[in-house]
Design a protein around this nucleic acid. Structure first.
Lengths: 356, 356
DNA sequence: GGCCTTGCCGAAACCGGTTTCGGTGATCAA
DNA sequence: TTGATCACCGAAACCGGTTTCGGCAAGGCC
């Protein structure tokens, strides 16, 4: 540890253009350059223009961590991924990251991420990143109902944006996909195929999306004038195994469904498994609709009919919203939604004629 | 937990313990505190201990971006993900990130990542991150033969670590899984089952691993005294589709193989598809061995026999190596390897008796 | 014409660290 | 005793920015 400071030569001290270089080149002082760059009102229009032109010419960019020492802000977004739950987040991670990164990069921001195993680590990581000013704001994937991260960030008065909506929206910026619309459309699609006994397998009820999607399903059933059979509704299925177990419950009930809507694709794959065990052919004996658009869904037999989410675009918009939030934009402009895209593949078909 | 909020909040930065607080509390000057914290030799043992104890007590941590302004180093690792290439690295991304993040976090470092779409963007991103000192070093996943990233970082004299080995090792730190051993073991496993006509489907030949794994396969064949049939060797299959096409080529050749070794799990899944098209049952008519341990492999029928890679551990070790490299540790200590774990599942079986 | 704004910018302090330089007091050889 | 050496630490400059404060000239008002 004693010789810890004899390090490899860091980045070549490229003659980076500093604010002093700018000042010298313009015949101004550092302070004027700084205020011009930051658009202070006490700098004349013409001077500001001169400065910015020169910045362009010399390709001057203030060093973010030099600014940070005074301002506390470092032009970087924080993203904390919780990886303990093997949830549906993983297949999208690459796209999502690509989007978030692109959104940040577009504005000249960077992205610092921390992946934590469990909840305690995640909170601790938040603390450290906040304390050390490693991020000016946070993107919170997978909004939970009564989210502890939200409480923490609110308390600390740190900007954040949710992927998903929360019950208590006050001072929350968010972006979300209208999963409830998708669920309702799923029901309508099945009804059009003649199904009347439609089951529903919900996702993790700790997450905000579950309530919404379930509402969407119920709404669809109501719209179609179909009754709700509590035996045909399951909760908390986020893995294939969960889905298989939930589906088993529905299929072994007194009056099994002819179709099942799943809040999560993995659960839908579980339905495949449960169906196979019972000799049921998906798309003929049993229709299944999923949600998420995971890649595996394209390779199953038959391919899964589902709603696909553009996670890259979601990430990009989240970055964008967060940056605007940090810049102090009004909250009302910082709540956006998008729709999932229906992929009509092979896992749905006409309701089998009842020959029970 | 409650009082931690107030000290942690980013908005209320004035609570943060600075070096001046330390100096005041100790009756020393800032400079002494700084040198003590950094282990300079001109500070007495006892003073250094006093300082470090006080740091512990006040939980003082130098602000990394305040240090960076003078030292240029910010205690953060850079990771640039290229997402243009197909699903190749996606399934591992979550684990890999978790590992990298954990490895960084353990040492009090952070992780800034950038995901780029194409090669040009990636190079550009490198440049920006370097210029702005956003990362003290980089982790390069997927080492390529004659890697342009390596050239760039060498040029800039910036520390980096490769995931994978390169032809030209000079001044490279790296970590790698011994894929060649796995391929050789795959051959031995099949030979033990009686196979003699064994095909090989290689991965992306632009990557360094492809050459190594192919060598491993050839070595295994040589060890078993089996001849190499060029018709049974395909290259550059990294997706299911690639794998299916390559497998079709092998299976439709004059003397089709009874077993196929794949450098990449996705290719192996392609073999499943090609086999299905020809009415061949995997594990009986045709044996398949993959490599990677992607989750999908566990859900196929039969489950794929493969070599699984612990990507989380890999990420963690890469972080660790990079940090040591940045600290100036000798290169000879910074080259590590690990083994893949053989998962003997259902896709291999005894060689079918030749009834051609 | 004098006084008070107002617009615009320079001077200097400041942020939280690091690093150079120099100055003690103690030790030690002569 | 003296002069030189050394271990240890303080003073101050510095890094690349931001921000406060104040000065100066031009313009408005009476």
């Amino acid at each position: 540890m004693n010789n810890a400071f004899t390090t490899i030569s860091g980045a070549k001290r490229h003659n980076r253009v500093t604010i002093s270089d700018m000042a010298a080149a313009l015949g101004l002082t550092k302070s004027t350059v700084s205020r011009a760059m930051n658009g202070y009102p006490d700098i004349s229009e013409t001077t500001q223009l001169r400065v910015k032109r020169m910045a362009e010419k010399l390709s001057y960019q203030p060093l973010s961590h030099a600014q940070a020492i005074k301002t506390g802000r470092t032009r970087s977004l924080g993203l904390i991924l919780q990886l303990s739950d093997h949830d549906a987040q993983r297949p999208f991670l690459a796209e999502f990251l690509a989007g978030v990164s692109a959104g940040a990069h577009n504005e000249g921001w960077t992205l610092t991420i921390a992946a934590s195993e469990n909840h305690e680590d995640m909170i601790e990581t938040f603390r450290v990143l906040l304390r050390d000013g490693k991020a000016d704001g946070f993107i919170l994937p997978r909004a939970m109902r009564d989210d502890p991260r939200v409480r923490l960030l609110r308390e600390a008065e740190v900007p954040f944006v949710l992927f998903g909506r929360q019950d208590d929206d006050t001072d929350c910026a968010w972006f979300d996909i209208l999963g409830e619309d998708a669920m309702r459309n799923a029901v309508m699609h099945l009804v059009a195929l003649g199904h009347t006994r439609i089951g529903y397998i919900n996702g993790g009820t700790q997450y905000a999306y579950a309530g919404l999607r379930k509402q969407g399903f119920l709404q669809g059933m109501a719209d179609a004038g179909l009754p709700i059979d509590p035996d045909l509704i399951a909760e908390d299925a986020v893995t294939i195994k969960d889905g298989a177990e939930a589906a088993s419950g529905l299929l072994d009930s007194m009056h099994p469904p002819t179709a099942i809507v799943c809040a999560v694709d993995f659960a839908a794959l579980g339905v495949y498994r449960a169906a196979a065990e019972r000799g049921l052919t998906i798309g003929r004996d049993l229709s299944v609709v999923g949600y998420d658009g995971i890649p595996e869904g394209a390779h199953t037999q038959p391919p899964l009919t589902t709603f696909s989410v553009d996670n890259k675009s979601a990430g990009e918009r989240l970055s964008n919203i967060l940056i605007r939030r940090i810049r102090g934009e009004d909250l009302t402009n910082l709540r956006e939604t998008d729709m999932a895209t229906f992929l009509d593949r092979g896992s749905t078909g006409p309701a089998p004629s009842s020959k029970n």
